[in-house]
Amino acid sequence: MTVNRRTPGKRLRSFLRDWSLPRQMRGESHKGAAARSSASEQLRPRLEEADKVGTSICPYCAVGCAQLFYAKEGQLIHVEGDPRSPINQGTLCPKGAATFSLISNPDRLTKVKYRRPHGTEWEEVPLDWAMDRIAHLTKKTRDETFVETLPDGTQVNHTLSVASLGGATLDNEENYLIKKVFSGGLGMVWIENQARV
């Protein structure tokens, strides 16, 4: 087994040769070779390995910051702001910058969980079953509580038993459709959006 035993003098000379500050003090430009070191020469951009780049919108608030998603072999490796966006111009707030953790967290729920009435345990159910159940219960509640006219004869055609709270990342077109379907189609009165920035 060979042990690399450099003398303190050799280590100091190597350090002074490799460290940028002494070279800058000797007059080398901090923008050129003086800024490089043997360690920095070996560094590679982490995004260089990406084989696919996609775009998305940050899921956290109503600002709608654009994001770039970098993937390698189908696995997300990085998320950053999209500099082409007129909204965020490549920047992200701390929540948006943490989107990578949101997506890649091993504790993130990826299956639909359902707890039956009076149940104590959560069970996994298919997404189609959950969507059908939500639609069935919404229609059932709406039909049971729908009011066509008030006692004085005023026509209202509404239900006060179902409400909608929209997400912050819904765009204008989605909110328009929600309002039309929920208000006009189902007669819902309580329609709100939690976009508060």
Rank of each mutant, 00 (worst) to 15 (best):
L170V: 03
Y70R: 03
P106G: 10
H158V: 07
V79M: 07
P59M: 10
P45D: 15
G96H: 11
C65P: 06
V162E: 04
C93L: 02
P83Y: 04
W129F: 12
L102S: 11
P117K: 05
R133G: 01
G167S: 14
G119V: 05
V147P: 01
T99R: 03
D152G: 01
G81K: 05
T141L: 12
S85M: 05
F69M: 10
K139M: 13
P45T: 14
G119Q: 06
S161A: 15
S56K: 06
T110S: 13
A66V: 00
Y114I: 02
E73K: 12
E48V: 12
D143I: 05
L92V: 06
G54H: 03
E48F: 13
I134S: 08
N105D: 15
V162N: 08
A97Q: 15
G90N: 09
D82V: 03
D107C: 03
T154N: 04
Q75A: 11
P83S: 10
P151F: 01
A50W: 12
L68M: 03
E80F: 01
N88T: 02
G166V: 09
E148Y: 02
Y114E: 08
Y60P: 08
P151D: 07
V147M: 03
A130Y: 02
A71G: 00
P83G: 01
K95N: 14
A50V: 14
G64F: 06
K113L: 07
D152F: 00
L109A: 10
G153T: 07
E49T: 15
G166K: 00
P106K: 10
H118A: 12
N88Q: 06
E144K: 13
S56T: 13
K111Y: 08
C93F: 07
T110L: 09
K139Q: 13
L68T: 02
C58Y: 03
A130M: 07
T145G: 02
H136L: 14
T138G: 04
Q155K: 14
P106I: 09
I57C: 08
D107E: 14
D152Y: 03
T159Y: 01
S85T: 02
A98L: 09
A130H: 00
H118Y: 10
P126E: 14
I57F: 07
V125S: 00
P45E: 15
Q75D: 08
T141S: 11
H136A: 15
D107Y: 10
V112F: 04
R133L: 14
L92D: 07
R46G: 09
E48T: 13
T145H: 11
L68A: 01
E48N: 10
F69A: 11
T159P: 01
T91P: 00
V162I: 14
G64Y: 07
A50N: 14
A163P: 05
L47Y: 09
V79F: 03
P94Q: 13
E49L: 14
T55V: 08
Y60K: 09
G64R: 05
T55W: 06
T55A: 11
